[in-house]
């Protein structure tokens, strides 16, 4: 059975780029434009992995969405990866997050944007599904 990936980003172009590419590579991809839609889709589609943009409605929408997903019983074991272009510019350095913050967010990994499609695919294959 195909693995299902949920991608949440307010930039529709990035979704349009990744969706057909990852589908071609054999994944099932569902997309959402904001964190509210993302959370609903998570519950209804039960993806195997989630990629979330950090700054959507608010600069930290991705953190909040990640926390909400991880708070669900079915969300505990699903890897959630936060993607952001903001890490350098806004001074949000994940390495400087406190233990408490990291525990609250519970993100499995962080990726710096832009992530070329091939690299994202390799990451999904190797790091997430250990193919």
């Amino acid at each position: 059975m195909k693995k299902k990936i949920l991608m949440v980003d307010d930039d529709v172009d990035l979704l349009q780029i990744f969706k057909p590419f990852l589908e071609k590579a054999g994944y099932d991809v569902v997309t959402a434009n904001d964190s509210v839609e993302g959370f609903e889709l998570f519950k209804s589609t039960k993806p195997d992995a989630v990629f979330v943009d950090l700054a959507m409605e608010h600069f930290d929408s991705g953190f909040v969405l990640c926390h909400r997903i991880k708070s669900l019983p079915e969300g505990k074991s699903v890897p959630v990866i936060i993607m952001t272009a903001a890490s350098h510019e806004t001074g949000i350095r994940f390495s400087t997050q406190t233990e408490e913050e990291r525990k609250w967010i519970e993100a499995d990994d962080y990726l710096d944007k832009p992530v070329p499609a091939r690299e994202l695919l390799a990451y999904i294959n190797e790091k997430i599904f250990h193919a």
């Binding site: 930039d11 172009d13 990035l14 780029i17 990744f18 590419f21 700054a55 272009a85 903001a86 350098h88 510019e89 806004t90 944007k113 832009p114 070329p116 499609a117 091939r118």
Partner: peptide, 17 residues
Amino acid sequence: AHELKAPLSAIQGYMEM
């Protein structure tokens, strides 16, 4: 910088495709 990077990321992504 963030706002300049966003359209560039999209353009870059499309070009790669």
